[in-house]
Design a protein around this nucleic acid. Structure first.
Lengths: 187, 187
DNA sequence: TTGACAAACGGAGCATGCTCCGCTTATTAT
DNA sequence: ATAATAAGCGGAGCATGCTCCGTTTGTCAA
């Protein structure tokens, strides 16, 4: 990679971060970012094929951090498996709420299929979710576990989450409802 | 409502239906539709505030029909509750697959929140799903039932469904996995 | 029938995401 | 140092969703 290209990539990330701090992510146009970065739009798009992928690049650190933290929790915690799962959910929802703008951009972009689902990020998220689900899902095949992880992620996507919040549910209520649904129960 | 307005609305629906039959929904622009309908784009947008809502209007008949059919099934069927739920899922997935382009447009539009979630259509869909879920969900509050219906719909949205299909799952496998997840089980 | 006017029309035009391609520049072999 | 060249740059420009607003028309009271 040429040195100027590397510099430009950094300029873009800095400019985007700056603008996203100043105003709502959805109101920041790619042109704005290019302008603030002091480069052409062509250069911007060569580095990040669309706005969603740019947002993903900016989220990567946050998510990586979240995943690392959660994996540590899952290995060290001594709480009951149920409690562990609920705590995981709670923290995931907190994380979502904190990064909602970036995540919404990623999840509602025009090419979710190729951008989000095929990303390294999604794979890692599934992985983590599978780890969180496994202890509360007895007698389940690996493929079904993967399926449930996909479903859990889908349930808590921006749109759906925002809708539940709008309906008046608190994060706690959502956590409780989800865990009631996902945890193998015999009542 | 003025008579010319009424006529134009019909012209739009006809033009859209015609174009959507000829080529992929996503490749048909609003300008195309206005042109074929023989009206200005302003008129088009006064009738349907965005492409998603136009697609919803076109889907309404299909979905209404589906809902009516399913409600009849739910009242008349003599199968076991489990079987009934699985049949419901199967037919819902079949329906999705048949109308996938319109549904994708609706569910991935820029304003899903106001267009989809706040539509009469969504309310009816939730209603139906709650009816389908109720027999397999003992001891559950009405609000939790509503939540589960929301979640089930969210799990099977276009993106998520398309991803599962792409991963190689058949409709039958998806049905089976979902029913295993949603049905109160004591194994 | 006619006049007044709300309702509706239509298309120019704006914003934004994204592409295309001629020009510039860092790199590297000589 | 120089020349050759691939890698990269940048912004004009395209497509599309959507808005704005001056013009036209259906409706209805007089």
């Amino acid at each position: 990679m040429r040195k100027d290209a590397q510099i430009n990539q950094q300029k873009i990330l800095n400019a985007a971060a700056k603008l996203f701090k100043e105003r709502a992510v959805s109101t920041v146009s790619m042109k704005d970012i290019a302008q603030v970065a002091g480069i052409g739009t062509g250069t911007l798009y060569r580095n990040f094929p669309n706005k969603s992928e740019l947002c993903m690049a900016l989220s990567l650190d946050y998510i990586q951090q979240f995943i690392t933290g959660e994996e540590a929790q899952l290995h060290n915690s001594t709480s009951s498996v149920t409690k562990q799962f609920e705590d995981f959910l709670t923290r995931w929802l907190e994380f979502r709420e904190r990064r909602i703008q970036l995540l919404t951009e990623i999840e509602t972009g025009p090419s979710v299929m190729s951008t989000f689902y095929h990303s390294q990020l999604y794979k890692q998220l599934v992985n983590l979710t599978m780890q969180a689900l496994k202890p509360i899902s007895d007698n389940i095949s690996e493929s079904e576990l993967k399926f449930r992880a996909d479903m859990l992620i889908s349930m808590l996507k921006s749109d759906s989450f925002a809708y539940q919040r709008e309906q008046g549910l608190t994060r706690e209520q959502i956590t409780s409802n989800i865990s009631h649904l996902m945890i193998k129960r015999c009542d």
